[in-house]
Amino acid sequence: MRNSQRSQKIAFSLLFSATLLIVVPVGLIIVLIIQKGIPAIDWQFLTDIPRKGMREGGIFPAIVGTLYLVAGAIVFSLPIGLLAAIYLSEYAKDNALNRIIKLAIVNLAGVPSVVYGLFGLAMFVVFFKFGASILSGSLTLGIMILPIIITASREALESVPYSFREVSLSLGASKWQTIRHIVLPNAIPGILTGTILGIGRAAGETAPILFTVAAFYLPKLPKSIFDQAMALPYHLYVISTQVPNVDEKIRYGTALVLLVLVLFMNLIAIVIRYQFRKRKKW
């Protein structure tokens, strides 16, 4: 009895300290970025173009560029990823080929982002002749987050109880009606979780946009999807390593804006997810 109580305490402290170990660094990063970045944030910083070799002025073109890229990546990858996930979880037979395909998709999520960047350069910039453009960058980011969206969507679809499908089919509904009216509505929260992860990844990655879209310094807004654009993560990389004598607060300010932007986009998805979860009751 004493022994089990002691091991209970040990287990608790181990689990608790592991959690603490994760939470503390994240908290510190956020506190540091806010503390050092806040002084840079003002209206001009958010709405002005960079000036004086990016040492002054604002980061507006980079904010706009990142928004365009993330939106483009989601517009491209969410429909395709969702359709593929529906096929894989609802229609594909359980054979060796399909198991390999599923495994490959899961593993694609672990491919380093610079590899996607090189792929995007070869495929979209050079082969399709889209050049370095928002289109190339969005497609590259979209391909990078496809595995995340497919995997999360598949899990969400498969977590809808099998009995719901049986009930629907037993009432004479077709397979597609069952998917459309029963499976899909109940999988939306999980699909949105995948989308949130995808948004965060697409907004934050530097390597995939390096060769496909990102402009070093472009003090104007893009006019079409065939234009180059600045983007926050690349801009942050540039002012931190490539341009000398950039004020520290501008660097941290940029990081803070990127953080808040991702948070804001996630918040939209979280609100939608919450609305759907309220309906889910089993």
Binding site: S163, F164, E166, V167, S168, S170, L171, I182, P185, N186, R279, K280, K281, W282
Partner: peptide
């Protein structure tokens, strides 16, 4: 041929 299952299975 309608079916009623063993457990009550209302759709959500």
């Amino acid at each position: 041929t309608g079916m009623v299952f063993a457990l009550p299975l209302p759709l959500p």
